[in-house]
Design a protein around this nucleic acid. Structure first.
Lengths: 359, 359
DNA sequence: AGCACAATCTGAAACGTTACAGTTCTTGCA
DNA sequence: TGCAAGAACTGTAACGTTTCAGATTGTGCT
């Protein structure tokens, strides 16, 4: 038993005083088995005896063995990394934090790590994706800001890189995604505003290159039609514009003779600017104008209870996206990895605990 | 030249049709040099001739050589990874996004990747740090929610893991950090409120286990003293509490006979709840009560121009923290890697472009 | 001419893992 | 009894890199 390996190698492990992390060799030495057997036993390979398997796994657990990621990666190419590709110009508002938390939570029970790969909106969005694929630095990728015809989707599909998108595409390529149903959202929003008697609606839309621009806009148009309402075009502002820009554009819009009497807003932060602009122009929310807004944080109602909101659970989106990439990596069927999150009902502000309310 | 390496190995490279990424061996074959020489030439080792060095580097650049991370990591232990340890219960408000963007930007020009290592506030904060250290899965760590006597700091110092903290400690261990000067912040805030004629101030403080609780509180106390003002204790709410909790506690506080006539708030999201609570209790910002708030997004003024704000640049903090860990990894002196961000002046709302203002 | 020495280059080994191609031992069956 | 087949295990090589210990030159000096 003692002569099967060169003595000096075992010495390291036998000394025991050292605290360098245990490797397969450590376990091999402790169990008297070969490194290959240990490797196999740990991954429940069929050609290992049940007794041996258990013994190896017991020892591994006892000494706190963890496979060396670099070793595995070098040998197999498997990185155990999911890359989240992020636009660093992204508007504030907690959106990204929640996405990251959601992904992290889903990844916590797995051997996967989350690495954030940034890019600037001004540069080519394909660039970071190409980097990840070319350097094989992740087993799967999550992207957002999905476009109807998205070259990143095409690229990763061609290169066989598993991925999931936050948002859908319309390019004849089937892929894993999670999306919020923005069509349903704006339909509900318009319905609410119609019920309130509003007639002339404006939409604070996403930038027109993104997929969900079309969903939100189509839902908006469909619902306007259905309720016999008209649209006041508001193309000078999108949720991507700066808060300052949106506010200014809103002021201008509200000073026009054909101003809207209601808004549907595609993003919480944008709604702050909308409200500010509307009020700066001299109108009042809930009276002159109604607004339905999507929000991912719960802040809007605190300062403008007159708003109507629909909450988007971005943390859930993160978890779903993680689930989806992991599924693709495991080779699961795409159809099972596509999810659409239906908006909850439009919420008005509920007056809090009984007592005096604001004057 | 042809007989120095086994023929089959070169065949791979010579075939050329394959698109597998170039390695040192590829360059070695192309230049006719040994792998060792190539490795050395690429890192400007002194024992390589100038001509050879240039030739190798030229070829490497031409064929787009990138060192295989797994190979480097396995051999040297260097991961080229910075781990950002995050509390996933963190309040919304864009704070974390900006931190990540700041770090990402600073890391973009380096070979470092950013991995997000999450933990729940309810579990042991040391746990994720121990994981990173034990598995040597990063070359450096960034932590937030720093405590005066922080066991993570002690642990990483003992184990020789380079790190930087967002926030300072007071435990006799010198280490890299970046911090916002919350002492100065609350001094300025109180000064502002004193100038407005406020007398009875309350503080929406951080949780008392965090370092910046003490800074903010001390600055608050010092300034109260200096201006001869008094404090209305408000210990039932901290910036860590949920929006809902803060709102409720604020309502209660404002209904007491000894209610405050001003607040200093340690966080933007908390301020939303403060405002809501104050107004729900029937008081008005700017009239019955004044508030000075820190904020990392620019949303507060949009809906309550009466607020006074101090902006905290969290993106900058991220960049500074990245700079600091990288410095530690490079062995730079700790003293050069400690930075404190002074608050800008307290800002009142500037009325925007000339025109009608809100009624 | 002989020799030391620097300059420049080199192969082999190692990091920890897995895949491949065995090797040994039992067992079942002709 | 002999032998094939399976069960259980093993060593070697390889992934791409860096380090170690040379090897091969050429140059200057005596």
């Amino acid at each position: 038993m003692n002569d099967k390996t060169p003595p000096d190698e075992n010495a390291d492990q036998a000394a025991g005083g050292e605290a360098n992390p245990p490797t397969l060799k450590t376990i091999a030495f402790m169990t008297g088995l070969g490194v290959t057997t240990v490797s196999r036993a740990l991954k429940d390979a069929p050609e290992i005896g049940a007794a041996t398997r258990q013994r190896v796994q017991l020892v591994a657990r006892q000494i706190g063995y963890r496979p060396n990621r670099a070793g595995v990666r070098l040998r197999t190419g498997k990185t155990n990394v999911i890359s989240l590709v992020l636009d660093t110009e992204e508007q504030v508002g907690g959106f990204v934090s929640d996405l990251i938390y959601g992904i992290s939570e889903a990844l916590a029970q797995t051997p996967y790590h989350l690495v954030v790969t940034p890019y600037s909106r001004n540069n080519d969005p394909l660039e970071p994706v190409r980097y990840v694929v070319e350097t094989a630095s992740a087993d799967g990728v999550i992207i957002s800001r999905t476009e109807p015809d998205d070259k990143r989707v095409r690229y990763m599909t061609e290169r066989g890189m598993p991925f999931a998108t936050h948002g859908r595409t319309h390019m004849g390529i089937d892929h894993a995604f999670h999306d919020f149903d923005n069509h349903a959202y704006s339909v509900e929003a318009v319905k609410k505003l119609a019920a309130l008697g509003r007639k002339r609606l404006a939409l604070l839309a996403p930038p027109s290159n993104l997929s969900y621009y079309h969903h939100m806009r189509d839902g908006f148009a469909d619902a306007l039609m259905e309720h016999g309402l008209s649209e006041v075009p508001f193309p000078m502002a999108t949720v991507d514009h700066s808060i300052e820009d949106i506010r200014k554009q809103t002021v201008e819009l509200m000073r026009r003779p054909n101003r809207p009497d209601a808004f549907v807003s595609g993003a919480g932060a944008g709604t702050f600017a909308l409200v500010a602009g509307i009020e700066e122009a001299g109108f009042r929310i809930g009276q002159d104008v109604d607004i339905v807004s999507k929000q991912s944080s719960k802040l809007l109602h605190l300062l403008r209870p007159q708003l109507y909101v629909v909450n988007e659970d971005v943390r859930l989106a993160g978890a779903e996206l993680a689930r989806a990439v992991l599924g693709r990596i495991a080779g699961r069927d795409i159809a099972a990895l596509q999810s659409l999150s239906k908006p909850k009902a439009v919420e008005a502000y509920e007056t809090p605990a009984p007592g005096k309310s604001t004057d």
